[in-house]
Design a protein around this nucleic acid. Structure first.
Lengths: 143, 143
DNA sequence: TTTGCTATTGAAAATCACTTTCATCAATGT
DNA sequence: ACATTGATGAAAGTGATTTTCAATAGCAAA
């Protein structure tokens, strides 16, 4: 059975000798209950609604910690903002983005992953990460 | 037969009612004779060697124009810099990047393109662009 | 070619999206 | 409860653009 993100993060905090704080829990709750691709600013604004005293720097630093702990991953969609997405143990996915309404959808495809490895190998590369984004118009916007 | 980038750009300038200037030609020559993935700063420094008076803003603005005119395309490799690559009529390629030495290699693969379209379609999306980057260690660095 | 209108240029100031600093607080071990 | 040390929020600092603005330089009409 898989451990909850909350537990994973608290374990990370303990392992690193860091402290468990009220603010970190607030950011964690906010992140876990949010849409998958939030920017620092977006999460900061969302949290500010309930916790007017939380600082941007705290959200920023905590999100970095999430990423270090493995429960989140930084992503860049070319709009100049750093976003954080949830990481599910052993899962990988790519993105399909609507350039009209901004919707982001996730997908994963074995065949593509396999092809990528083959291509890399044929060029002598040893790949450890990749990034695949498809930009287009989503079903709703097409109508 | 395909038109030269130089001609394409000059046509664009004329069509838009813009002016043909010495500086734009300097930036154009510099861009056309350069490696495929230059950042604004890199091109600016290269041009400064021969043309000490050219301004960063001019290089910046001209590169934007190249992109608008279709002879160049902006790309982001996640290093926080905007780079510009040459666009060849009707050609598309993806990138293989070495995370050790920074080398960038281009490749293209029909099968992957096809799979991407199929995936997008199966989600109801109409794709117009995509971005595929494979990060790994290049042959030279593996040795 | 001279003129007049408008686009372009280079330098500097302004933005943006982080990142870091620092004085003050708050967890945690004893 | 105390001391120690990491955490926080506000503000200052960065790096990479992006925009502003006064001075120029194309271009076309005369």
């Amino acid at each position: 059975m898989k451990k909850s993100k909350r537990k994973l993060f608290h374990d990370f905090i303990a392992r690193k000798g860091l402290k468990s704080t009220r603010q970190r829990d607030i950011v964690l709750d906010g992140f876990l209950s949010s849409d998958a691709h939030m920017s620092i600013e977006e999460l900061y604004l969302k949290l500010r609604a309930r916790h007017p005293n939380i600082g941007y720097a705290t959200v920023y630093r905590t999100l970095k910690l999430f990423s270090e702990s493995g429960i989140a991953r930084e992503i860049h969609f070319g709009d100049g903002q750093t976003r954080y997405e949830h990481v599910a143990e052993g899962e990988h996915h790519d993105h399909l983005l609507c350039t009209r309404c901004g919707e982001v959808m996730e997908f994963s495809n074995e065949a593509i992953e396999k092809l990528q490895d083959e291509i890399a190998e044929s060029h002598g590369y040893l790949v450890h990460t990749h990034k695949l984004e498809l930009y287009g118009i989503c079903p709703k916007c097409r109508k």
